[in-house]
């Protein structure tokens, strides 16, 4: 009887833990991730550096909207890449699965690819594009998307 009571108590705690666990992300605000924004992609291309290599990201057409085909352009200065760069699209602090943009070289140091930023039903609009340069490193551009 004692064992039964203990088991029931543990299962009840587990149940409420999961209920709260699932409810918290739904009500979480965008304010924390909003503070991470380092790129005004809606108005201009963004530039960042990876140990001397200058990486510029542009997304067209503007305004940058979710659920639309978008063209991602990456310009690289001060680096000779042996393999093509790749962009990982994700939301800060939220696992959405692998959403990658494969790129092709259109001119020396200029790469383009088509991708889609999906709409999160939570209403959060902050997205992250991580540009991976093989052999050099990676850098993240965090920006707001229009739903």
């Amino acid at each position: 009887m004692q064992l039964f009571k203990k088991t029931t108590a543990i299962l009840s705690i587990l149940f409420w833990f999961f209920t709260v666990y699932l409810a918290v992300p739904l009500f979480a605000s965008d304010s924390k991730t909003g503070a991470l924004i380092n790129c005004d992609i809606q108005h201009q291309p963004c530039t960042r550096q990876i140990s001397g290599t200058i990486v510029t990201l542009d997304i067209q057409p503007r305004p940058v909207k979710a659920m639309k085909d978008l063209i991602f352009e990456v310009q690289i200065k001060n680096a000779d890449l042996t393999r093509l760069p790749m962009i990982d699209l994700s939301m800060p602090g939220m696992k959405m699965g692998r959403n990658q943009v494969t790129m092709k070289m259109t001119a020396k140091g200029v790469y383009q690819g088509t991708g889609i930023i999906v709409r999160c039903p939570s209403g959060k609009t902050v997205w992250q594009a991580t540009v991976n340069l093989p052999g050099t490193g990676s850098t993240s551009f965090i920006f707001d998307v229009i739903y």
Partner: peptide, 13 residues
């Protein structure tokens, strides 16, 4: 059919 980010991601793939 519920809208869902991860589902969209795999649909893109």
């Amino acid at each position: 059919l519920l809208p869902c980010g991860p589902v969209y991601t795999v649909l893109i793939a």
